[in-house]
Design a protein around this nucleic acid. Structure first.
Lengths: 109, 109
DNA sequence: AAAACAATATATTGACAAACATAATACCGG
DNA sequence: CCGGTATTATGTTTGTCAATATATTGTTTT
């Protein structure tokens, strides 16, 4: 039996899932948003201040995160709170953090 | 002292590095290429057969990988061999594999 | 309950970059 | 100099980013 063809199809399917998420994270604003959300739930206003983005730009990128199912939202009065919805993305963020975030004042090293 | 501003700048710098790599991987063909290379050095011809791509398309994506410094090349006669150049990308690929590659016939589970 | 205000979302647009196909070009060994 | 191997050039189509302007939803004030 020819496992080659099967393998490549399965791989393409998995790659499709992965690239969907990678595409979302492959933007500095969105990646930073997800990093912030990785630390815990935040309101749009908080995110706006943390990242210093124009509000519509922020909202648009949050829309992308929503559309891909990477975040959950919760309304409380006027404010809307965002949080990370996908465990796998959390794991990915952790790996990225390890690899690309210089620990300038890291005393544990 | 205001650590807020400093933090966001440092984070943007790190995010820039990370998104550069994520952008490259956020394409199914390139991701599959890197996955193949993660298993070991391969010639262009081998990659072409594995992924079933038109050669110029393949070569163009390999060009992107080269431009971002994700791969090394080695010439042997007519053939050119590609391999993964960046440890961090290797780690990232491993994480992605864990998260998105279904282990259909995994007897260790 | 209507007006005013605050928080967030959507619409539209324009600049710019990505993807992939076809065709042409370079590199190497015999 | 020919055949095999790989890269570059170019054009078309499509997608992405972020800015300005406008709309929606919820709260407060009168």
């Amino acid at each position: 039996m020819d496992t080659t063809t099967l393998d490549i199809d399965a791989m393409r399917a998995a790659a499709g899932q992965a690239t969907a998420v990678l595409s979302v994270l492959a933007n500095a604003n969105r990646l930073l948003l997800m990093c912030q959300l990785g630390q815990g739930e935040k309101s749009v206003g908080e995110l706006e201040e943390l990242l210093d983005l124009h509000q519509p730009t922020l909202s648009q990128q949050l829309g992308v995160l929503r559309a891909e199912g990477l975040v959950n939202t919760r309304r409380d009065g006027k404010k809307i709170y965002y949080s990370v919805a996908d465990e796998r993305v959390l794991a990915l963020l952790a790996t990225l953090y390890q690899l690309y975030c210089p620990r300038a004042g890291d005393s544990t090293r």
